[in-house]
Amino acid sequence: MDFTVPLAISEKNYTLRVSEFNNATYRTILKYLQNDDKPHLTKFLDNLVDQVIENKNDTLTRKDKACILLTSRSISIGPELELTFTCPTTQKPYKGTVDIPYIVEKLCQTHEYPSKTVKINDKVEVLLKMHESLWIPPADTLDAVTDVVSTIKIDNKIYTLDKIDLTDRRKLIESLDGSVFGHVSKYITDAWQAHEKIQIITDRNPHDPEQEPKEYNINLYDNTLFDFICLSLAGNLRESYQMIYTLTNHMQFSPGYVDNITPVETTIYFNIKTQEIERQKQEQQTSQQNNSPTLGGLGAPSL
């Protein structure tokens, strides 16, 4: 049974249990990130959300998915995200840390923009609500319209769209009376404008006291939330392979076991091995010093 932690879905008043993801999953994420393949990374992360939660019983919004992914990231990679900045004046690097559980807490406390019913004519109305997709391609901003239409009521019959795939859903929304378009784009704009920005980090440059602190924020209603998730998952693919190599070749773990443990567990094993090698090096140096020839054939003085 997987290790899980609780996550309160504030908007819906229930608690989910979120589990870790393993090295094999993390490597796939790193490959998509390396290729900057956002469409496929989005699909992969959507599937990952379903894998890391128990008892999914409701449609998840973008905010829910983000909280789940960041929580899973916290327990699989670590709760802190370390960022490296470069001072523009001195070119010296400095570090900043983002506390991911704190960001999840802030996200959970942030209320989603209220859903809204739009009456198109006497017989048709649509319900608009928070985005479900983690990422909307910038070139297809008009597709944001498709994403917020949640149900369609025609002649008092309600059709729920959450189980319909995006291509069919797009076709369906496109057949609606165009007057809905203005309402939806206004809903999205209002939500974006009304929404409180969530501050993730304040960049305080220690090398230049003149530089004003710079705030980095995310918004639930644009792609900045997805960009932050990507940033929190970023890592070095080569280092990841090096760790696996060390664990399988020098520590005799089976490849299957290594693939199934979390990245943070891998780092722990790797650090143990590194410390062990360091200790052995030191012991070797000490023993070499102890066994080195002494002046006039005299041994080292006993302490």
Binding site: N121, K123, V124, I152, I154, D155, K157, Y159, I164, D168, K171, L172, S175, L176, D177
Partner: peptide
């Protein structure tokens, strides 16, 4: 495309035809 989608599109178009 599933039959369900065709049904919904059909219902939308039927209403749309009445609203000229």
């Amino acid at each position: 495309m599933s039959q369900d989608i065709n049904d919904i599109i059909g219902a939308i178009e039927s209403v749309s035809r009445q609203n000229t």
